[in-house]
Design a protein around this nucleic acid. Structure first.
Length: 353
DNA sequence: TACACGTGGTT
DNA sequence: TAACCAAGTGT
């Protein structure tokens, strides 16, 4: 199997079925000479890391409306960017987004570097994102390998070695298929194919443009590929979150440390999250009441149960941790999801007793 | 190499 | 419903 065998039918399919996305220049426009804006390609690709298209759409629109250029994003305040990213997850992406924008302005004259090697050296841009920007925005014949491409290639070549060990083998196979013509459309076509036809479960092999080339389909094993090594069971952790509301409606929040879970995001003061429930440590002396509901949340690598404590505190109270945010300056949507759940649990009427 | 790092939709 | 899954990167 060589590149023309795959790219011709794949690009033909893409010309007819390319998904429409706010950041994408479709195949017709692309033929007419319209070039995608590297800033928008970069922003969308970072947002799409481990994240679905449906989840990204509105975030992309809000970011580009508020910061239309990389220069404007670079000049934004950290807290504004983190608040706008809230709910999208993997918050290191937002921290690196700002670092990258500022590096583009400081080191590259406000213009994204035009090749994958230089892109790769920027914060938050790894092998996938560098190849994607280079191929889509700059027509570089870079090989774009994401989870979709791994799945499509594993099936095309009937690679039965399990992931993640098979990653390098799959990347080599993908490189063989990458054409020098329309590499950006090829990359997007592979990802669209993986998202809509060559899906993880119940792939639609009967309408696949590559059905005649697919060795896994020939062998009847397409749905079982790619194989994956068994994953570890998620441990349980517990903690306490404290929601203090001042008489004037201000709420007590604190900025989390830059590194680690939810780094750089606002959250409610609380205990650590551990397998054994930590000792209470309220951020301010008050008559703390346990909320009627606990909060359940699952992160990538553990399950969490939070006990929510609430209290009213008098004006003028000086907190031991965090700072009060005025009611008018506070939006639950600017919190990471687990913290928004705490807010929702604390806002319920107290348990009847 | 292996693990940390979010979230919401699907099965 | 618990598990799986999504356009990965940094350490």
């Amino acid at each position: 199997m060589c590149d023309a065998d795959v790219s011709l039918p794949l690009l033909g399919w893409y010309d007819a079925h390319a998904r429409v996305m706010p950041w994408r220049v479709g195949p017709q426009e692309r033929r007419a000479g319209i070039r995608p804006d590297p800033y928008r390609v970069w922003l969308s690709e970072v947002m799409l890391q481990q994240t679905t298209v449906a989840a990204v759409r509105d975030y992309f629109r809000r970011f580009t409306a508020r910061w239309p250029t990389v220069g404007e994003l670079a000049a934004a305040e950290d807290g504004a960017v983190m608040a706008e990213w809230a709910g999208l997850g993997y918050y290191a992406r937002a921290r690196n987004l700002l670092k990258c924008a500022r590096a583009v302005v400081a080191d590259h004259g406000g213009v994204f570097p035009g090749d994958s090697t230089a892109l790769r050296s920027l914060p938050g841009i790894g092998p996938y994102t560098a190849a994607a920007i280079a191929a889509i925005a700059f027509d570089e014949a870079a090989t774009v390998v994401d989870g979709n491409v791994e799945r499509v290639v594993a099936r095309l070549f009937a690679v039965e070695d399990p992931l993640p060990g098979a990653k390098s083998k799959l990347a080599e196979r993908a490189a063989r298929l990458t054409p020098t013509e329309r590499p950006g459309d090829f990359a997007q076509a592979m990802m669209d194919l993986g998202a809509t036809i060559c899906t993880p479960r119940n792939p639609a092999c009967g309408i696949c443009p590559l059905m005649d080339l697919c060795r896994a389909r020939a062998a009847g094993i397409a749905p079982s590929l790619p194989r994956k090594s068994a994953k570890a069971v998620k441990p349980e952790r517990q903690g306490i979150a404290y929601v203090a509301t001042r008489d004037d409606g201000a709420v007590l929040l604190e900025r989390r440390p830059e590194k680690g879970l939810l780094g750089g995001m606002l959250g409610w003061p609380g205990t650590d999250w551990a397998e054994v429930l930590p000792e209470p440590s309220p951020p301010v002396p008050a008559d703390w009441q346990e909320a009627a509901r606990t909060v359940r949340h699952t992160f990538t690598h553990f399950h969490l149960t939070l006990t929510v404590m609430t209290a009213r505190v008098a004006g003028g109270t000086a907190p031991g941790r965090g700072s009060f945010v005025a009611r008018g300056d506070f939006r639950p949507a600017s919190l990471p999801t687990v913290m928004r759940k705490v807010h929702d649990a604390a806002s319920l009427p107290p348990s009847g007793d």
